[in-house]
Design a binder for these strands. Structure first.
Length: 315
RNA sequence: GCGCGGAUGCCCGAGCGGCCUAAGGGAGCGGCCUGCAAAGCCGUGAUUCGCGGGUUCAAAUCCCGCUCCGCGCU
């Protein structure tokens, strides 16, 4: 039977990759696309809990190891590479299985986000204004719709919206309905849920395990000036600080675990807002079967692409 | 036993007579977001300051006693 593309999401350390691999192995004809902002970097394996060589040999994975840790990488590049991957998967008459915990990257694929371009000169200009409130006022005049979408103190977001609006001559809000809009999508989304106590325990365990497996050596082997993004990766940032002598190893480990816990919460809050996600308990013994059933059942429901909603409009 | 220092929200910590219904940070919890997203931003906590008395118009802030903790001394 034909299946809609599948997406597996949820907080870190919850078993998304294992589930994806199991489903892919059961089906054949499925290729995995990673939606993980840090797994794109080569050489960052242990700390990002990248799929093993064995998994990658049995199922084709995309969007892993596509950037150098010293190189900047963002959603726009991600989208571009995903498009290429999707093209090749489609040409081979295979099915994509999106897996990952980077909310924005997941949305970029599931909702086919068109990421506006960059306008460095405009951006540099705007950065000269230190008063974020003034910038937000300006955005409110130029693009009221975008202004209400973000909190006034969120400088980074406000700057970007202004950069796009001024640079492109089109309101930032005209590039899409915003992330709060959950429209129809072809993707069947399955979310792995888990109670917080177990999640915390898994994070703790996994980190200790990563340290045992040579996380520190992996960090040492990375190219020195890490890109802005790669340098912030959970665990890496703390271990780097330790190597610079800024904190003890124990402090670094504690800090990394705490920050990972906080990140996992943020992921939970992000994904639970998406009403289209079907949640299943990550600890369920029949996890794969449950996912399978949801995937199958949902695949019978035809979903119109967003653009085709007005097909009947004219006649 | 004596001397000195300390006791403030879950944790750290400012305050040292009125502007304290007690700063700030961290954690937790909640929220936001289309080019750093494992990032960034916002919101939320003590009517109470170890306990009991006293001084004062007014105390977390001063005095007395008690309890506990740290350092030093016998």
């Amino acid at each position: 039977m034909t299946r809609r593309p599948l997406a597996i999401v949820g907080p870190t350390a919850t078993g998304k990759s294992a589930l994806a691999t199991a489903l892919a192995q059961r089906h054949g004809g499925v290729e995995i696309i990673s939606a993980d902002a840090m797994a794109v970097y080569r050489g960052m394996d242990i700390g990002t809990a990248k799929p093993t060589a064995g998994d990658r040999a049995s199922v084709r994975h995309h969007l892993l190891d596509v950037a150098d840790p010293a190189e900047e990488f963002g959603v726009a590049r991600y989208r571009q590479l995903v498009d290429e991957a999707l093209g090749s998967i489609d040409a081979a008459h295979r099915l994509p299985l999106l897996v990952g915990g980077t909310g924005l990257y997941v949305r970029a694929v599931v909702d086919d986000l068109r990421v506006p371009g960059r306008y460095p000169k405009v951006a540099a200009d705007l950065a000269g204004e230190p008063d974020t409130a003034k910038l937000h006022d300006r955005l409110r005049r130029l693009d009221p719709a975008a202004a209400v979408r973000m909190e006034p103190g969120n400088r980074r977001r406000v700057l970007r919206a202004l950069e796009v609006t001024i640079g492109s001559g089109r309101p930032f809000s005209s590039f899409g309905p915003g992330l709060a809009h959950y429209g129809p999508t072809r993707y069947v989304q399955i979310g792995l849920e888990i109670d917080r106590g177990s999640l915390d325990a898994r994070i703790e365990e996994r980190y200790d395990d990563q340290i045992r497996r040579g996380f520190l050596a992996e960090v040492l082997a990375l190219p020195q000036p890490l890109s802005q993004t790669a340098g912030q990766a959970l665990g890496y940032r703390e271990l780097l600080a330790h190597l610079r002598g800024e904190r003890s190893l124990d402090e670094a480990i504690d800090e990394a675990k705490t920050r990972t816990r906080r990140f996992a919460r943020r992921q939970q809050r992000w994904f639970r807002r998406d009403p289209r996600i079907h949640w299943i308990d990550a600890g369920a013994p029949d996890l794969v079967d449950r996912a399978e059933r949801i995937w199958e059942a949902e695949s019978e429901i035809e979903v119109l692409a967003e653009g085709s909603k007005c097909d009947t409009g004219g006649a």
